[in-house]
């Protein structure tokens, strides 16, 4: 039951990404092109998602266990550091170049699109490079 529910959440999320337009890189770049012909659609994606999310996280903060009785993993890290800023800058620049962020890229890969597959392959290499670098440097990891 728990496994089925996780699958369904992934499915709902993915359908939401496609319906919203997030899986179309040209639409994403149309939103990021603030000083050109600006397509504000993606602001509504964020708005719609947060309008639902804000209530659910207010509720989650009052609870100690999840529906299935397991732990509720709310992030405890509230540190604003160089890692957060540099990471977000790198991510944002990559997002602007290709028009893919991780979720929509995975959906495009699954639909068999060559560009999505290429992007995801490079993204996985990037994530592995990060993991290997972390291990070499031996710094304590701060994760959300």
């Amino acid at each position: 039951m728990q496994r089925f529910s996780e699958f369904m959440v992934g499915l709902i999320f993915g359908v939401g990404l496609i319906l919203s337009g997030m899986t179309d890189p040209a639409k994403v770049i149309g939103f990021l092109d603030l000083f050109g012909q600006w397509d504000p659609s993606l602001a509504l994606v964020m708005g719609g998602a947060i309008a639902v999310g804000i209530f659910s996280f207010a509720l989650a903060k009052k609870r100690t266990v999840n529906f299935f009785g397991g732990a509720l993993h709310l992030p405890k890290n509230d540190h604003i550091d160089k890692r957060l800023i540099i990471g977000a800058l790198l991510f944002g620049a990559g997002w602007g170049i290709a028009g893919y962020c991780p979720g929509p890229a995975l959906v495009s890969m699954a639909s068999g699109q060559a560009e999505g597959i290429t992007f995801v392959a490079a993204m996985l290499v990037g994530m592995i490079v990060y993991e290997l670098a972390q291990r070499t440097i031996h710094k304590p990891r701060m994760t959300d």
Partner: peptide, 14 residues
């Protein structure tokens, strides 16, 4: 190039 940046950046920035 973008995929590498997104992969490293999202992990580094959590």
């Amino acid at each position: 190039v973008a995929g590498l940046m997104v992969g490293i950046g999202t992990r580094y920035g959590s």
